[in-house]
């Protein structure tokens, strides 16, 4: 089992707290003029996504979390789980709904995703920052209609709904920024 001392703390370090893997978001070293030093950290629970603050006595050690990111190709969903493949080793893995989370809205077959593995098991899936998806349904959008802030909802082939400009029509391909869930542009076929 690997351990980290508080002196190794920095943003991005993966540690175990109360049985869950966490990512250190921010580490602050605090010390009174004389006396006990502390590491005050903001950590994000990699299972729930929740961020909390923790304080450690400087010099304490914390168990390292066996967490690392790997790029994998999304293959298909079998109705229950999402199947991914390592493009180099061709090794396949399945991720469950909590791990895939929001990414399910954006990914389709063959997309490359960033998969976070904890003890070798997918813990989280990040979709590509930009995806190109087909619109399966949106109102025709009358010319000159500016209601709804100049946009309208469009349902994409993955089921995600994004706001698109009025001129964008059903069956067109659009580019979406998955980090903010927003339309970027139309893509010509």
């Amino acid at each position: 089992m690997a351990f980290y001392s508080t002196s190794e703390f920095k943003g991005g370090l993966k540690i175990m707290l109360d049985g869950d893997p966490y990512n250190i978001v921010e580490n602050e070293f605090v010390k009174p003029g004389k006396g006990q030093a502390f590491n005050r950290v903001r950590v994000r629970n990699l299972k729930t996504g929740r961020t909390v603050e923790k304080t450690f006595k400087s010099g304490d050690t914390v168990e390292a979390a066996d967490v690392h990111d790997t790029d994998m190709q999304y293959l298909y969903n079998d109705g229950e789980e999402w199947h991914f493949m390592d493009p180099e080793s061709f090794e396949q893995m399945t991720a469950n709904a909590p791990a895939v989370g929001e990414a399910a809205k954006w990914i389709k077959d063959n997309d490359m995703c960033r998969v976070t593995l904890w003890n070798g098991v997918p813990l989280a899936v990040d979709p590509p920052n930009f995806v190109v998806l087909r619109i399966v349904e949106t109102d025709p959008g009358l010319k000159g209609d500016t209601s709804g802030g100049g946009g309208k909802p469009a349902t994409l082939e993955t089921g995600a709904v994004v706001r698109v400009p009025l001129f964008v029509q059903t069956d067109e391909l659009i580019k979406v920024d998955t980090r903010i869930g927003e339309y970027v542009s139309r893509i010509k076929e």
Binding site: V30, K31, P32, G35, Q36, F38, F56, K57
Partner: peptide
């Protein structure tokens, strides 16, 4: 889980 002695707790309250 945080275990500190008397002065350690005072230091924690002072700094935090």
């Amino acid at each position: 889980q945080l275990e500190l002695d008397h002065d350690g707790w005072l230091d924690l309250l002072l700094t935090h």
